[in-house]
Design a protein around this nucleic acid. Structure first.
Lengths: 180, 180
DNA sequence: ACAGCCATGTAACTCGTTACATGATTAC
DNA sequence: GTAATCATGTAACGAGTTACATGGCTGT
């Protein structure tokens, strides 16, 4: 039990459980959609369940079947071992530099194929998408409040907001340079 | 032939060939490492070869075996059909918002597990990595020159440089907020 | 002679996705 | 009653990775 390395996404899910609550797979997915999505990925529902199963196998979380009128739901809680394992991973030096899969930059890179008008269009639509994304993240940040419990998630949300703001400014500048 | 959708990475490789040269798989990989790496991914050598093979099967590139004293190298060139297909993909509205896999943000999000000192450390090391990455991209940008041929790649490289600058500033600000 | 780069691929595997399948509870 | 949401999984597949295998060319 507990042998073998885990993919980062598993640690991310384990991390969601490190805030102390006992969550169902469904709830873990919702938290992932609300927070992890902006800095990591939003794992598919099916992956959440299978990853939680693996974490349980290794004793990093416990699975408890909770009887509720008619329906039984399975709640997961992080174990001491899981917390220790998570801490060890967190303090490990980060080997991977952030990977950006940026379809807009990729398409702009090939602007010579489509011409300046298409490139401007691309950046315009990106600016709209950025606004929408930023609005979503702003709601998440507001939802986190100013309590100490979620101080770090709030910090990271603000990082994301600053990133979107900067990205919007850069995109606007690039668009202007294509205007000529 | 030419049936079926292609993954974005295949279009990215096809895009590298859209600049007109006839390249070997090895050279495509080098271009990918130099440019695509910053905004998309650096595909493994083995993937470059298998993707080029698939593009050839579909008539989007031609493969020509070039005899050279003893050794034969295979050079790929984009076809008219390939260029048309690439153009169609480029003008398609971008459905995917950029995906950021940001291990530093992910670990910072879980700062409550390790404490403020570890979080500061994390951001310090990230700042160093950012500097290194920015220096690499600066070399790429300089190598692209100011010729019209690589105007779009140069534009995107400058986007990347601005992004790294902004990221460094944000990380420094966050670090200061953890100082107290 | 030897190291390092150029060059090309195959095989096994992992991560993560979509599609499929099922059913209970809640709000209107 | 019926639609949306809560809840839990399995199966098939795809994209991309690492490990393995091979060999020529180039500079010292």
């Amino acid at each position: 039990m507990s042998q073998g390395e885990l993919p980062a996404t598993s640690y991310a899910l384990l991390g969601l459980l490190s805030f102390g609550q006992e969550l169902t797979g469904y709830e873990v997915k919702q938290w992932a959609d609300a927070t992890l999505r902006f800095y990591w990925v939003a794992p598919a529902m099916s992956q959440v369940y299978s990853d939680l199963g693996r974490l349980a196998e290794r004793g990093l979380v416990t699975a408890r079947d909770e009887e509720g009128a008619g329906r039984t739901v399975r709640r997961y809680r992080i174990t001491d071992q899981g917390l220790a394992r998570l801490r060890a991973w967190l303090v490990e030096p980060v080997d991977d530099f952030p990977v950006l899969k940026h379809p807009v930059a990729l398409k702009l890179l090939l602007g010579h194929v489509t011409g300046a008008a298409a490139a401007r269009d691309l950046l315009d639509r990106y600016a709209d998408a950025l606004d929408a994304q930023r609005a979503n993240l702003q709601k998440v940040r507001d939802g986190l409040g100013d309590d100490a419990t979620f101080a770090y998630p709030a910090l990271v949300a603000e990082w994301g907001l600053a990133y979107y703001a900067s990205e919007g400014a850069i995109a606007a500048r690039l668009r202007d340079r294509l205007e000529s």
